[in-house]
C-alpha cells in the first residue's frame, strides 16, 4: 500500500489518503463472520461449466445442420439423371440376331422405322405413356426366349 499513485503524468496527493480511507472503512466496519462459500461456488461452477459445454455442443450441431442444408440447397437441380442399368445380356449363339436393347449398341440396334423417317434422339425424354417403363421388362422377356432357344439347341 505504499506505492505512489500516478494519475497519468504525475503523482496524486490523495492516494495515501484514499488508501487510509479504504482501510478505515473495511477494518472498522463490523465484519460478520464469513460463511462457507467455497462449496456453493464449486457446485455453481460445475453447473456453469456444464451449461457452457451444452451450449457449445448445441451451437456446433446447429452449425453442422445449417451447413448440410446449405450444401444440399446448392446442389444443381437440373443435373442429368442417372440412366437405369440395363440387365446384362447373355451371349447369343452365332447367327441369331440380338434383339435386346443395349445402350452400347445404340446406332446398330436402331429402332429406326423401316420407312426411313428420322429416328428419335436417344437423349430426348421418352413420352410419359409408360412405354419407357416397359423397356427393361421386354428385354427380360427376350433374354428368357434366348435362354429357351439355347436349351433347345443343346
Amino acid at each position: 500500500m505504499t506505492r505512489t499513485m500516478d494519475q497519468g503524468d504525475g503523482t496524486d496527493p490523495g492516494a495515501e489518503e484514499m488508501r487510509g480511507a479504504f482501510e478505515a472503512i473495511v477494518t472498522v466496519a463490523a465484519e460478520p463472520p464469513m460463511r462457507d462459500v467455497t462449496g456453493a461456488a464449486i457446485a455453481g461452477g460445475r453447473r456453469l461449466r456444464r451449461r457452457r459445454r451444452a451450449t457449445a455442443v448445441a451451437g456446433v450441431s446447429t452449425a453442422v445442420v445449417v451447413l448440410v442444408a446449405v450444401a444440399v440447397g446448392l446442389t444443381p437441380v437440373g443435373a442429368e439423371p442417372v440412366t437405369p442399368v440395363v440387365p446384362a445380356q447373355t451371349p447369343s449363339p452365332s447367327g441369331v440376331p440380338d434383339p435386346a436393347p443395349s445402350p452400347d449398341t445404340g446406332p446398330s440396334r436402331s429402332l429406326a422405322p423401316e420407312d426411313g423417317s428420322t429416328p428419335m434422339p436417344s437423349d430426348e425424354p421418352m413420352p410419359s405413356d409408360g412405354s419407357s417403363a416397359e423397356e427393361p421388362e421386354r428385354a427380360d422377356d427376350l433374354t428368357e426366349q434366348e435362354r429357351e432357344r439355347e436349351r433347345d439347341t443343346r
Binding site: 465484519e31 460463511r35 462459500v37 461456488a41 455453481g44 461452477g45 461449466r49
Partner: peptide
C-alpha cells in the same frame, strides 16, 4: 469479500458477490 464490500457497501451483498466470483472462477479454473 472486503473488496466486494468496498464496492457495494453491504456485507450480505458482498458475500453474494464473492460467491458469484468464486463460482465463475471455478468454471474457468
Amino acid at each position: 469479500r472486503r473488496s466486494a464490500y468496498l464496492l457495494c457497501g453491504d456485507w450480505h451483498e458482498a458475500q453474494d458477490l464473492t460467491q458469484t466470483t468464486l463460482m465463475k472462477l471455478y468454471a474457468a479454473w
